[in-house]
Design a protein around this nucleic acid. Sequence first.
DNA 1: GTCCAGGGTGAAA
DNA 2: TTTCACCCTGGA
Length: 311
Amino acid sequence: MNTAAKVISSGESVFIPTGYVDLKATLDGGQVFRWWSDIGGFRGVIGQRAMLLSETSNGVSARPVDGKSLNGLRRLVSDYLGQQQDLVGFQKRFSDDPCLGPALRGYPGLRILRQEPWECLFSFICSATSNIPRIKRNVGTVAETLGDVIGTGSRDVSFPRPEMITDAGEQCLRDLGLGFRAKYLVFAAESVASGELNLNDLRKESFAYARRVLTDLHGVGEKIADCVLAFSLDKTESFIVDRHILRALHKWYDLPEKASHSYAADWARDYFGDHAALANQYMFHRERLARRAKDWGGQHISRALPEDGRY
DNA sequence: GTCCAGGGTGAAA
DNA sequence: TTTCACCCTGGA
């Protein structure tokens, strides 16, 4: 590499002092579905900006790939990476917790994102009876088909407004491979496009009220609502229950093995309080890696990881 | 080739 | 409270 290119490339990026962020765990761990591993980091879109995010020792650097300036980028990325959350308080409170302590030492850079609510709701409606590779493909295909091109890469597209989804219609979404979720997605899009549902307003409402509004949508149950509440609506007390989390709650916190998902979520919100969403994410990440290690025939031992988490 | 499960939800029993 | 259809894809 010649020096000129190096200078230009470093001059084009902005540093965001977030503290250490584990981009793979955070952007490729099931919270969000439109970030892709690229040379030097992860490439994706926040709002109307396409960028490449890279890890540094004490923060993240962002390089635009949309030909626009650095103006506003630091604020945009900082907000997106969940800087408003009480990660320090959470770490202190649960450093001795048998489940969360090792997880906190193992992946200290795992964050909860603050996503744009509409894309988040769309993504998690897509998640029903699906898996992460497929959700990524579904959400990506819809964005690339109906969104606006904002960068130089094929995936550098803004997420389509609800009106674009209602105009496209259920059959279009089915043709794109969304299956039975297509009609739920159109319902949600109609609700937002008509103004009947204002997602941004729910950020200011209580957890219980916002959850009720979301689950009133056809095709959105408690699980999907809790994802949207945690990952885009600032509800730090949200706790997402699936069968993996249920198993973890049984194993570490002695919850009845056959507790209902609904009961487990209520219990966890009460137990973890305002740290429920963080606890949930660390627990989920731990279970996910443990399961993967098992698939490899190995064993997942968090304590074997370096204490400073730079692995 | 078949079988099965994948961060569910709604409707009917 | 429990059971089942709903779509579809990748891996066993």
